[in-house]
Simulated scan of single mutants.
Amino acid sequence: MSSTAESSSRTQGRGKVLLVGDIRKAFLDAESVGRYPCDVKANLLEAIEAAAACDYDAVGVVMNGLLGQLGPVLRALRRGTKAPIVLLAQMVDEPIARRLVQSEPGVGKAADAYRVCPTTLAGFGSGLAAASGAAAWSQGDVVPPGVEKRMRYLERLATTDDLTGLKNRRYIREFARQIIERARHSAGRVTLLVFDIDNFKHYNDVYGHATGDEILRQAALLMRRCCRPHDVVGRIGGDEFAVVFWDDPHGGVSEPPSDRRHAEAEHPSEPVFVARRFQNEFGHAELNLLGPEGQGVLTISGALVRFPRDGRTVQELFERADAALLDAKRSGKNRIYLVGEPKSNIADLP
C-alpha cells in the first residue's frame, strides 16, 4: 500500500473514540453509545486492528475482564496508534491503573490516563475534549469543561481524606468489598491492617490540634512509603488508619502471576513485613514539633486480619480487627496482633 493510500485509510477514525472491551462494565449509559462518535470493539483482536487502521482521537480500554491480558493489549495498541490511551478502571483496578500511567525506566507509560468507573459517556467524552481540544464529542449530551472539572473535584472530595491525602473510610470499605469479591473467584489473598496512634489524644491536648494534624500527616506519609504501590492506604476516622493488602493480579507489568498462592496460605509475609517496618520507622521518626525529646515517642497499636480465614465480608474483617486492636491497647499498646489461633504479636513472629 502506498503512503498516500495508507494515510487515506487511516483517516476514517478521525473525530472518533475507540472503546475496547465490554463498555457495560464502565458506562452507566452504555445503551446510548449510538448517540456518540464511538467505535466499540468488544473483541480484542478487532480492537487492535481498528486502532492500527484508524486515526482515533483517543482509545478507551475497559480494564474489567482483562485479567492477564491487559499488558499485551496495551502494548499492541501502543504499537498501532498514536492516540492517547485512557484506562476505564473500576475502583478495585485503580491502583493498577495509577501504576500503568506512570513512566517506567526504559519502557515509558503503558497508558496516558485513567478514569474511575462507572461513569457516563457524556462525562468521559467531555473530559477528553477538555484535555485535548478535540471536537470528537460534538454529539450527544456534552458536559461543559468547567462542569466536568468541578465533577472531578467533587469525586476526589467524596473519596479522599482532605487532611492526609489518603483514601477515606467510604473508599476503603468499598474497595475492600470489591477486592474480596474478586478474591472469592480467583483464590487471591486479602489482608486488612487496622491501626491507630497510641495516646494520640494526649498529643492533641498537650501540643495542640495543629501538631496533632501534623502527626497524622506524617503517619500517612510513612505508611505510603512502606507499602507496595498497589496496596490501598486510608484514614478511616480520627487517628485510625487502614491498609488493604492484596495480590496484584497483573504482576509486575500486567502479566499473570506465575505462582498463584491460595487464599488459605499461612500468615501473610508481605503485610507483616510492611507493618513491622512502619511500626519501626514511625517509632523512630524525628518530630521536631514535639520538642527535643520528640524522637521515638510515637507508637501504634493495630491488628492484621485475613480473608477468608478471619472473615468472609468487609464487616466481619473490620469487626475482628477492631476487637484485636482493642486487645492490643489493653495489653500495653505498641503492638500489632495477627489475628488467628493463637493470636500473635507480629514482633514475636519469626
Rank of each mutant, 00 (worst) to 15 (best):
T164Y: 06
L166E: 00
Y153P: 01
R170V: 13
K149F: 04
G146C: 02
Y153K: 09
T159N: 09
D161M: 11
D161K: 05
E148M: 01
L154D: 06
L157C: 13
R169L: 08
R156F: 00
M151G: 01
R169Y: 07
D161Q: 11
D162E: 15
P144T: 00
N168C: 11
L166D: 02
L163M: 15
K149E: 08
N168S: 10
D162R: 14
V143F: 04
V142E: 12
R156K: 13
P145Q: 01
N168Q: 12
L163S: 14
P144F: 01
G140C: 07
E155Q: 14
Y153R: 13
K167W: 09
V142K: 11
V143E: 01
R150H: 11
Y153G: 03
V147W: 01
Y153M: 11
T159R: 15
L163A: 12
R169K: 15
L154H: 03
R156P: 00
G165Q: 10
T164E: 13
G146P: 04
G140Q: 06
V142S: 10
R150S: 12
R152H: 00
M151V: 06
R156G: 03
P144K: 03
E148S: 05
T164G: 10
P144C: 05
R170Q: 12
G165L: 14
N168I: 09
E155C: 04
L166K: 03
P145L: 05
V147A: 12
Y171V: 01
R169W: 05
V142Y: 02
K167Q: 07
D162K: 12
V143M: 12
V147M: 10
L166H: 00
V142N: 05
L163V: 08
V147T: 08
T160N: 03
P145D: 03
G140S: 09
G165K: 08
L157S: 10
K167N: 03
G140F: 04
L157R: 15
P145S: 00
L157Y: 10
D162G: 05
V142F: 02
G165M: 12
P144H: 00
G146E: 09
P144D: 04
T164P: 10
R150Y: 10
D162S: 15
K149H: 05
A158I: 05
T160F: 07
R170L: 15
Y171Q: 08
R156M: 09
M151K: 07
T159P: 03
R169P: 06
L166F: 08
D161Y: 07
N168E: 13
V147F: 11
D162L: 15
L166I: 02
Y171L: 15
G165S: 11
R150W: 09
G165I: 07
A158Q: 10
M151S: 02
D141E: 14
D141S: 12
P145F: 02
T160L: 12
V143I: 15
D161C: 09
G146Q: 09
E148G: 04
L163C: 10
M151H: 06
E155W: 05
T160H: 00
N168M: 14
K167G: 05
R152W: 05
D141H: 08
G146K: 04
Y171T: 04
M151C: 10
